[in-house]
Amino acid sequence: MTAAGPWIAKAYNFLKRIKAFDILSYALIVLGLFWFVISGAEKQGYFWQWYRIPSYLYEFENNSFTAGPILQGLQVTLKIVGISLVLTYIFGLVTALMRLSNSAGARTVARFYLESTRNTPLLVQLYFVYFIVAPVLNIDRLSAAVLALSLFEGAYASEIYRAGIVSINRGQWEAAYSLGLNNFNMYKDIILPQALRRILPPLTGQAISLIKDSSLVSVIAVYEMTMQANAIVAETFLVFEVYFTIAAVYLLITVSLSQLVSYMERRMKIV
């Protein structure tokens, strides 16, 4: 072996360990896509003005930074997503348990909710909740958006929960039963902890859908990130710059979420 050999091997291993090759190929693909979009826009004679974007992200006044409209919108988006996510998981779990219960009434109600929610467009549901449900319950725009979103995503989440619960081996139920555990403890201590481990990946997928779907609540004029973007575009015609920017922000949120969950998954994995 030459003197240079081990050095090259070490460098190669190091690059491999930090996933340099994956990152490089990913960067190439992204660059290719960018080139594609930019040349497409140029063919249309689009005049890029990226330099104007930072002023919509943040403002610098009196020696301090304040959030621009896009980041203000992001705060609203995160608030909507945060509350909706909790409600989604609650609605989903309750619906799944109702569908698995012995009561025919509970099963019917759950089924009706599930089918009517999964088989109609979210856009229509948003209008329905905003114009019909919200006045009755006397709730504001933001709450209406949260309610509509979590009802919609909750229906999908319930099927994920149900799949996870029924996937648990019959022996586990029988063991819990024979020890004299009641239903609540059987689910809490035996079934759900095992099911949650299995359904963490699809539940994360549901959270990602929720984050992206939250952009739809702009139609009922909730000033979240997409609505702010719409307003800027209407004012400035910076269509591509603004929408690409918020797309990147959505991407940043969803990718960090996926990373967080895969970290949790590794930690939860037992042996």
């Binding site: 081996n169 022996g171 586990q172 029988e174 063991a175 819990a176 035996i190 902890p193 095992q194 037992i270």
Partner: peptide, 9 residues
């Protein structure tokens, strides 16, 4: 039980 059915978690 035949297959023990211990709680794996």
């Amino acid at each position: 039980f035949q297959l023990f059915n211990l709680f794996p978690h």
